[in-house]
Design a protein around this nucleic acid. Structure first.
Lengths: 187, 187
DNA sequence: TTAAAATTGTGATGTTTGTCACGCTCAATC
DNA sequence: GATTGAGCGTGACAAACATCACAATTTTAA
């Protein structure tokens, strides 16, 4: 498990074994079951998660009781309600397991401590934040220049495994389309 | 002009006058006319911009010749094709003036130099990146849980001045809706 | 100043997508 | 092994939105 985190970090920055030991001491390894919540809407968000295995959904419940999927988090992804995490406020989204999931979790306090004591890691988090920002902008672009069917095809193209791992209702909710409309794309 | 940049940075981190002098030496002040391009699609992206005054649009041209507005950049905003800037590749978007615009521009080399020599600024850029990521996620959410009319009202609510400063064709292109449909919302 | 271009509104019509309703299948639970 | 509920497809209809066409007005540039 530790190896996965180490390899992940080393894709971006070089670290010694000692440094990694120091880094990993700021994290907690956690195990969640399908349907467990890592973040509950309305509660204080104190942790950010790196997914080792399994699958999470970041969901927003609107005033009409509809559930929207802001993001899926697969192996090798970082996820949290980043707005609430960085501003240290209550969440307006939930983070829930689609499958049994293992994560490395870091508290906000430890995130700050680690960033300060090991500037390399601040650079690492900066680069991760860039990636997140760029990925979000790509998703905005897909809403602007593609219709629902095209977005569906792009999603399957980018993450073919999702089709096997996720009920289509959730894919529809991620794409911003109704379950029925998405169902008709397959036929 | 320098004061605006200083005040902007001081909203996030504390800096001395000497530090600011050092910081500003990494930037170039530039003046653009309406319709000028700061970034041209297909060209290498070497600069990131802080808008002092004026208004920019970040646009993506799709294969059907349609223009989509990924982002407006108003006073006090940072803008670039961040994907191309950070990866130092060619742009697939353009950044163009809607109004005459003054910016502080920083090259990628100077961005790296400044981040390294003044770690405070790396933290500053990190916090700016978080804001950008969070803002993009909010925009994704608006596509998921609001229809075109609601998105229009939210935009006018958030940036009332846009209605005076920007032709409605551009607002439509930002919202992902046709000009005609947007026009009918007003009546 | 005057001609050309950009901006906006609006009608007619077609396409895309949402909503409601129903039935079938499959997996989980007792 | 019977029951319950999730997942999925599909028909019928309604709502949202796009597209094409045209006219009126304003802005821009020669």
């Amino acid at each position: 498990m530790k190896e996965k985190l180490k390899e992940h970090i080393e894709k971006t920055i070089s670290i010694s074994d000692d440094e990694f030991t120091f880094i990993v001491s700021h994290f907690t390894f956690e195990n969640y079951k399908k349907n467990d919540f890592l973040i509950q809407e309305g509660e204080h968000v104190n942790h950010c998660y790196y997914v080792i295995s399994g699958l999470l959904k970041l969901i927003f419940n609107d005033k009409n009781g509809k559930q929207h999927i802001v993001s899926f988090a697969m192996e090798d992804w970082w996820e949290s309600d980043f707005s609430a995490y960085f501003k240290q406020t209550k969440s307006n989204m939930s983070l829930q397991c689609i499958e049994d999931t293992c994560v490395y979790s870091i508290s906000f306090k430890n995130y700050q401590k680690l960033s300060t004591e090991l500037p390399k890691m601040e650079r690492f988090f900066l680069l991760k934040s860039h990636s997140g920002h760029i990925a979000s902008q790509q998703r905005i672009l897909s809403f602007l220049n593609s219709n629902a069917k095209e977005r569906y095809e792009q999603l399957l193209n980018q993450y073919p495994s999702l089709l096997q791992r996720v009920p289509k209702t959730l894919l529809a909710s991620y794409l911003g389309v109704s379950r029925e409309t998405l169902s008709r794309f397959s036929s």
